[in-house]
């Protein structure tokens, strides 16, 4: 596949004014123009300035990714758009809550694996656990995969949050 048509995932950070409708503007832009959203997280990050930070993971050809960034930047309440994937090294994390039901050997094995993945037990009943696991997507995915064999009943994930390495702010 040529460089121009290769589809690559990009992690994009968007600093926005925390005002009603801003998430609808961002999401509407993606659906209206046929872009993909692999993952999206949003929360207020600066209460004083009333700013929120959105982290979007999206896939597309280089031309599409360029378009997505330009279209996001064009929205009136958007302060800044940064493509973390192209702008140097960055860290990505996501958090999952994983509910596992079972007794006996399986229960012990789940607990043991949780320890390996540094997942915390945040709820326990005699026949179930809820684990909190944090890490990059691969790690979270792998942990969930392992739990499937041990009585996985429910999963919830935050989606990716990401930040550049080093001392610079967005």
């Amino acid at each position: 596949m040529s460089k121009d048509s290769a589809i690559v995932a990009h992690t994009i950070s968007v600093l926005v004014a925390n005002e009603p409708g801003i998430l609808a503007r961002v999401v509407g832009l993606f659906s209206g123009r046929g872009y993909n959203i692999e993952s999206l997280t949003v929360a207020e990050t600066n209460a004083k300035e009333s700013q929120s930070r959105i982290t979007i993971v999206t896939k597309g050809t280089p031309m599409i990714i360029e378009q997505i960034k330009a279209q996001l930047d064009r929205l009136v309440p958007v302060y800044r758009v940064r493509d973390l994937t192209v702008e140097g090294p960055h860290i990505e994390r996501e958090l999952a809550l994983v509910k596992v039901k079972g007794v006996g050997e399986k229960r012990v094995e789940a607990l043991r694996l949780a320890d390996v993945f540094r997942a915390k037990v945040i709820d326990a009943k005699s026949d179930s656990f809820v684990f909190e696991v944090t890490g990059n997507t691969d790690k979270v995915q792998t942990f969930i995969g392992l739990m499937e064999e041990l009585g996985l009943v429910d999963v919830v994930r935050t989606g990716i949050v990401a930040m550049s390495r080093g001392g610079e702010a967005l």
Binding site: M63, A70, Q71, D73, R74
Partner: peptide, 11 residues
């Protein structure tokens, strides 16, 4: 004047 017009259809 609109950066999103650039490289949208034609590089």
């Amino acid at each position: 004047i609109d950066p999103s017009s650039i490289n949208k259809n034609v590089r």
